[in-house]
Design a protein around this nucleic acid. Sequence first.
DNA 1: CCCTGAGTTAAGGCTGTCTTAAACATAAGA
DNA 2: TCTTATGTTTAAGACAGCCTTAACTCAGGG
Lengths: 220, 220
Amino acid sequence: MRILLVEDDAALGPELKTSLGKHGYAVDLAVNGVDGEVMGKEDIYDLVILDLGLPDRSGLEVLRNWRAGKNNIPVLVLTARSAWQERVDGFDAGADDYLPKPFHTEELLARMTALLRRANQQITSQLEASGLTLDENTQSVIRDGAEVALTGTEYRLLRYMMHNPGRVLSKLQLVEHMYDDCAENDSNVVEAYIKMLRKKIGHEMISTKRGQGYVFGAAG
Amino acid sequence: MRILLVEDDAALGPELKTSLGKHGYAVDLAVNGVDGEVMGKEDIYDLVILDLGLPDRSGLEVLRNWRAGKNNIPVLVLTARSAWQERVDGFDAGADDYLPKPFHTEELLARMTALLRRANQQITSQLEASGLTLDENTQSVIRDGAEVALTGTEYRLLRYMMHNPGRVLSKLQLVEHMYDDCAENDSNVVEAYIKMLRKKIGHEMISTKRGQGYVFGAAG
DNA sequence: CCCTGAGTTAAGGCTGTCTTAAACATAAGA
DNA sequence: TCTTATGTTTAAGACAGCCTTAACTCAGGG
């Protein structure tokens, strides 16, 4: 899952980036509204965390511009202002959720999970597909009742695929959602990790669409 | 929009029902968890507003039961408890949003709007013609309920033909839409792929117009 | 009956994918 | 700090499946 974090606070921004990174998110940080708005228009993010109190351009304005451009990426708004009118403004501008500062990281993570789940029409909080259950806490999967440990990169790849079951995902898409910033694409990391995942979760869980990409989902 | 409101508070329940009614929502009120759970299983509500502090059955339990039964109706949770751990529990149980009491009606309305907006964004990218359904995600066709896998070139050919059912499509047209660059025309690629498609989707789906081209569509 | 266009099939070549191993990075422990 | 273990990335050869072609057969129309 690749996240865009728009936050000008020099302390909070990097701190959040680090702690979200530990939970398996690839995070790109924008420290002002103009950069953030441009980055948010790229079609590679699964979620945006947007601070309203930006120095150059109001977060609300950024959000309105996105929505005016038919960009409907899920946006979670952060703000120090706690007046309820401000929250309503945020929703009017097209926010999907709202979290007043200060907040606990656990609550931010919970709201992020809920938003991502909702964006993919998931029902339960645990991500489940084709007999696999992804455990967000231990970064592992349950398969046939047994827990299978995953490494960080394996977890990021599998989670993205399980969020999009039955869809063809190109190698470019997968790379973009596994890593932040870096843009290179002349390697075969995806193929290598697909191989490892298949070994761990069963070869039949991921099918290859030659020339198109990979599809997560049993049978086919 | 029809809303299910599960709220035991004798004052707040009717009050909310009235004010939501003024905003154009049809609201059914359940005053306890058991009734609420049963009503929520009917497939008529667009959104549920669920109070956690119910006398007979915990709202969390109601929510878990719905989710266990594959009911994925959007649920907005209300609660008097403001501890952040409680919110995280709510999300884990499958809530889509969470609003601590006390709240302003405007904020509730704003969150309802955001939830409903997101719930209605179901994307169906399926093309149907003559009993075949083309699945753009998996690049396959459903025929008589069974999925038939297509290779890349087969898919491009069939997609173009299904986009133009009942029309005579010349071989030149077909080649041009199957390939990006090519200008050559001295091969029998089209005939070869028509053959493969007929084998996969049924001979009768594509009829030949001698000297003119092919027509997609059952019967003829 | 001839000619033209369509159907059928199989073989070769090519491109993308799989697999393996080794180099590299990182974190934990002595 | 050095060592060790674990995870990540790169590179290269093996492999498989798809694409394309070519040769032959078949059917329709004049």
